[in-house]
Design a protein around this nucleic acid. Structure first.
Length: 210
DNA sequence: CACCAGGAATGTA
DNA sequence: TACATTCATGGT
C-alpha cells in the first residue's frame, strides 16, 4: 500500500474514532509531575487501582518530587499499595522523581530527553513515551498492547519491535502533540469498547443458545 | 476458582 | 533476538 494511502487511512480512522467516542481528555492529572507518577503506577495495572493510590498521595499532601524522595520507602509503599507491585513502584517513583528534578531546567531535544528517561530503572519505552507526550508535550507516539491490536485488526502494520510501531505512526501522521495525545487515548477507548462488545456477544450466544 | 489491567527487568537459549 | 518468569492489588 502506498504511503499516501496509509496516511489517509490513519487519518480517516482517527476521525472515525473521534466521532464515535468523542474527546477523551487524556492524561487526567492536576500537574505534569502527577502524569509521571500515574505513568509508573499504571504499569500493567488498571487505572481504577491507580486512582486510589494517587488519591492517597494527594490526601497525604506528598504528591511532589521532593516529598516522594524524602519519604520513608515503607511509607510510600503503603500509600501506593492499591496500584499493585508496590515495592517496585515505590523505588521507581523515587528514581523517576530524581530524574524529574534533574531534567527540570534542561533544554534537551526530544531524542536526548527520551534517552534520559529510558536510562531510569523501571521506565521502559511505553512509560518514557507517555511521560514525553503527556507531561513534557513532545510529539512522540505512545505504543501499547492496544495499539498493536488496533494495527492488526485494521491490517495497518505488523511488527514485533516497539520502535517499529512508533516509527509507523510518527511517519504517517502530522507531528502534532494534541493529535498524538488524542489518538492514543482513542485507541485505548476503542479496545475497551471492542472488549465489551465481545462480552455482550458472549452473553447473547448463551441466552439464545439455550 | 482463574484471568486481566493504560509494563519492565531479569534470566535463559 | 525470542520467550519465560517475577512483581501484587482489586475487579469480574
Amino acid at each position: 500500500m502506498r504511503m499516501v494511502t496509509m496516511r489517509k487511512r490513519l487519518r480517516d480512522l482517527y476521525l472515525e474514532l473521534l466521532a464515535r467516542h468523542g474527546h477523551q481528555r487524556w492524561w487526567p492529572a492536576d500537574t505534569k509531575y502527577e502524569v509521571v507518577v500515574g505513568a509508573i503506577l499504571t504499569q500493567n495495572t488498571s487505572w481504577k487501582n491507580v486512582e486510589r493510590a494517587i488519591a492517597c498521595l494527594k490526601a497525604s499532601g506528598r504528591l511532589l518530587p521532593h516529598a516522594i524522595l524524602d519519604m520513608q520507602t515503607q511509607e510510600l509503599e503503603t500509600l501506593i499499595r492499591s496500584s499493585g507491585y508496590y515495592r517496585q513502584k515505590a523505588e521507581r517513583l523515587k528514581l523517576a522523581s530524581e530524574k524529574w528534578l534533574e531534567l527540570r531546567r534542561s533544554r534537551l531535544g526530544t531524542n536526548d530527553l527520551r534517552k534520559q528517561w529510558l536510562s531510569v530503572r523501571g521506565i521502559g519505552r511505553e512509560t518514557a513515551d507517555t511521560i514525553l507526550l503527556y507531561a513534557l508535550e513532545r510529539p512522540v507516539f505512545v505504543i501499547d498492547a492496544y495499539t498493536r491490536l488496533f494495527c492488526s485488526h485494521h491490517s495497518l502494520f505488523e511488527a514485533r519491535e516497539y520502535d517499529a510501531y512508533k516509527c509507523f505512526f510518527e511517519s504517517n501522521l502530522p507531528s502534532s502533540v494534541p493529535l498524538f495525545k488524542e489518538y492514543h487515548a482513542l485507541i485505548v477507548e476503542w479496545a475497551k469498547a471492542n472488549k465489551n462488545r465481545q462480552k455482550e456477544a458472549g452473553h447473547r450466544a448463551r441466552n439464545t443458545g439455550h
